[in-house]
Nucleic acid binder design. Sequence first.
DNA 1: TTCACATATAAGCATGTATTGATATATGCA
DNA 2: TGCATATATCAATACATGCTTATATGTGAA
Lengths: 112, 112
Amino acid sequence: MASLNQYSAGKRSEALKSKRVFLLLAETFQALGDSSRVQIVWALSKGELCVNEICDLLEMSQPAVSHHLRTLRNLKLVRVRREGRVSHYSLDDSHIDSLLREGITHVEDMIS
Amino acid sequence: MASLNQYSAGKRSEALKSKRVFLLLAETFQALGDSSRVQIVWALSKGELCVNEICDLLEMSQPAVSHHLRTLRNLKLVRVRREGRVSHYSLDDSHIDSLLREGITHVEDMIS
DNA sequence: TTCACATATAAGCATGTATTGATATATGCA
DNA sequence: TGCATATATCAATACATGCTTATATGTGAA
């Protein structure tokens, strides 16, 4: 990707870093690029929830929810707090909420 | 999705609107959830580019780039300005840039 | 009109991903 | 220990997506 150097402050290390950033960035957006997962994230932006509650909210099977939570966890979009048998999920950091809000703003502008 | 009503200000119309928003939101994030497309968007955040220039920058075939641009266009992430035979692409609105920056911030926090 | 160039679209293959159903782990309680 | 609950993982199927090759559209120039 030498042709991208002009965008990466000219340094090779910066170019490589950018490449890695792009890959992670794409994975992050992809994790949010699913109707089920984006609803999970949105629900979690209102507060902590356990797996069972998410299943009920989204009317989805437990394995499917666990699978999605794993995807979100892998990208550090959500985090778990285990309490006995119950796993409580919440957003991992404040950027996630900002990201969601920016996205909603764009989509709502798009609709109206 | 009646179980989601508590999140939509109690009104049925709001619940339906939210459902539509979620679908569009997921599609939008999905459009950004590809390494090639997110690089295109990032490149366009630096300024307008024609298809040919994007092909060179990303070292991708012209049909592949056109295909991605179509995806981005459909979700109003980029827009075209035709000038003779040349199509000039740019970001459609300022939210796109904000979205990208929020994403990069999250990913860079994640790495460090 | 005819040619060349810039971009767009189509068909096909290869890979990736979401969902389901079954099963595994792990905790709490009797 | 034995059982029920909460969550995680696995295997298989079905569907979606990216890239390539080939072709089409559309514009400008000769």
